[in-house]
Design a protein around this nucleic acid. Structure first.
Lengths: 232, 232
DNA sequence: CTAAAAGTGGATAGGCCAATCCGATTGCTA
DNA sequence: TAGCAATCGGATTGGCCTATCCACTTTTAG
C-alpha cells in the first residue's frame, strides 16, 4: 500500500484531522437516518441540519451526493452482497434464491434510501458499485443453478431482478409507514410466478443497456443537478 | 338543478368570461402534457409556463393542485372506469380481468401523471374520485365473477389492485423512456401469479384503511404543502 | 507554548417554488 | 361605444435548495 493509494475504508492518503473525522462520522450517521426516512431525494441541507454541522462542512467532505451515497450505502450494499453469498451457500438453489429476494426486498422496505439505491446507479461511487457488481455476479450464478434444478422458470433474466426492485420500491415508497408490510404480498406473488413451470410466455426482457441507462438517469437526477427547468 | 349548483363539467353558476375560459383550456392542455411527462410532482409554475399564462391566472383558476388534477384526470379516470365496464362485458371474467389490468397499466406507462393518480387519493377532487369509486365497484364485481369461474385465485383482494398499480408506477417511473416496455414483463409475471390455483399462501392483505391512508398522504404531499422540513 | 495548517460555519449568490397583490387590460353589456 | 366588472400577469414575499466564499477557531507539530 503506497502512500498515495486510497483504500475505500481506511483513511485516505492525507488523514483527516480528528475533529474533521468526527464530523464526517456524524454526517454519515445523519445521512443514514435521513435517507432511510426520506429516500435519496432528501437534500444535502437536511442532512447537514440533522448532523448539526454547517452546510459548508457537508460539501467540503462530500462535494457530490454520489460520494455521500457511497459512504452511506457501501456497507448496506455489502450486506446485500452477503445475502447473495448466503443464498449461494444454500444447498437448494431455489430456496436460496427465494430467501435472497425476500431479504433484499425487506432491506428496501426498512430503508427508503436503499430502496432507491437498488434502482439507480452511481458510476462515481466506487465501492458501492463494486459491491453491487459482486452481488450481481453471484446472482447470475444463483440464477443459473436455480434454473438447473428446474425450480426457476427458464425465461427468467437477471435484469428482471432490477425490475423487481423497482416494483418493490414503488410499493414501499407509496405505502410507507401506513402499510409497512404491503410489499410482502406483491413480492410473494412475484416469487410464485417465478417458480417453474412457467404459466405463460413473457414479453421480451428489458435490454440490460436500456435498464442501465434508466438507472443511470435516475442516479444523476438525484445527484446534484438544479432540476432541469424546461424552457418552452 | 338550482342556480347555485355546480356541475363538474358544464360551466359553473357564473360562466367564465370567454378569454378566461380559453385560458382555462390552455392550462388544462398544458397540464396534461407536463403531468404526463413529469408526473404529478411537476410544479404549478411549470404548468403555467407551458400554458403561456401568468402564474396568477394559474392560481386564480386552480387554487390547489387537487383541483387541477381533477380537471386534468377526470376524463382519464373515466376511461379507466370504461375499461372496467368493458372487462365486465367480457363473457369470460378472467379474460376481462386480465385485459383490464393490462389496459390500466398501459395507461400508467403512457402517462406518468396518471400513474401517480392511481396510487394517490384526492378527497376534494370530486369527479375524479367519483369515477374512481365507480371503477372500484365494477372491479369488485369483476373480481367476484373471476373467482367464481375458478380462474382467479381465491385469496386475491381488491386492495391488491392498488398494490399492483403502485408496483407498476415504480417500474414505469424508474425506467421512463429508457425502457418503455419493461413494465409489461412485471405485469405479466403478476398476472400469471394471480391465476388459480394459487401456488402458495400469501401474507395478509394490506388493510383497506391503511392503504387509503397511504394514498391520502401521498396525495396531500404532492398537493401544495411547502415540504415538511423536519427540525430535530 | 506558539504558529501554521486544517477545518468550521455563517453569509451569500442564484435558482426554483407556492402564493398573493395590484396596476393595466380586456370582454361584456347597456 | 362607454364604462364597469372580470381578468390578466408581472412583481413580490418568503421558503428551501445547491454551492461557494471567507473570517474565525481548533488541532497538531515543532
Amino acid at each position: 500500500m503506497t502512500p498515495g493509494a486510497q483504500h475505500p475504508n481506511e483513511p485516505a492518503a492525507q488523514p483527516l484531522r480528528s475533529d474533521a473525522e468526527r464530523n464526517r462520522e456524524r454526517i454519515i450517521a445523519a445521512a443514514r437516518t435521513v435517507f432511510a426516512r426520506d429516500g435519496l431525494s432528501a437534500s444535502m441541507a437536511s442532512v447537514s441540519r440533522e448532523a448539526g454541522v454547517g452546510i459548508a462542512t457537508m460539501f467540503r467532505r462530500f462535494p457530490t451526493k454520489a460520494e455521500l451515497v457511497d459512504a452511506v450505502f457501501a456497507d448496506r450494499m455489502g450486506a446485500y452482497a452477503d445475502a447473495v453469498a448466503t443464498a449461494l451457500d444454500d444447498p437448494d438453489p431455489w430456496n436460496g434464491f427465494v430467501g435472497y429476494i425476500e431479504t433484499a426486498c425487506a432491506m428496501q422496505a426498512v430503508d427508503s434510501g436503499f430502496a432507491d439505491v437498488l434502482t439507480m446507479v452511481f458510476p462515481t461511487a466506487k465501492t458501492l458499485e463494486e459491491r453491487r457488481n459482486q452481488a450481481y455476479e453471484g446472482m447470475v450464478q444463483l440464477i443459473g443453478r436455480a434454473k438447473a434444478t428446474g425450480r426457476l422458470r427458464e425465461d427468467f433474466d437477471a435484469s428482471d431482478l432490477v425490475l423487481l426492485h423497482m416494483a418493490n420500491a414503488g410499493v414501499v415508497n407509496a405505502t410507507g409507514d401506513a402499510a409497512p408490510d404491503a410489499w410482502r404480498r406483491v413480492v410473494a406473488l412475484l416469487i410464485q410466478s417465478l417458480e417453474a413451470p412457467a404459466r405463460g410466455v413473457l414479453p421480451d426482457p428489458a435490454g440490460h443497456e436500456a435498464l442501465y441507462k434508466a438507472m443511470l438517469r435516475a442516479g444523476q437526477a438525484g445527484s446534484t443537478a438544479p432540476a432541469p427547468g424546461k424552457s418552452g
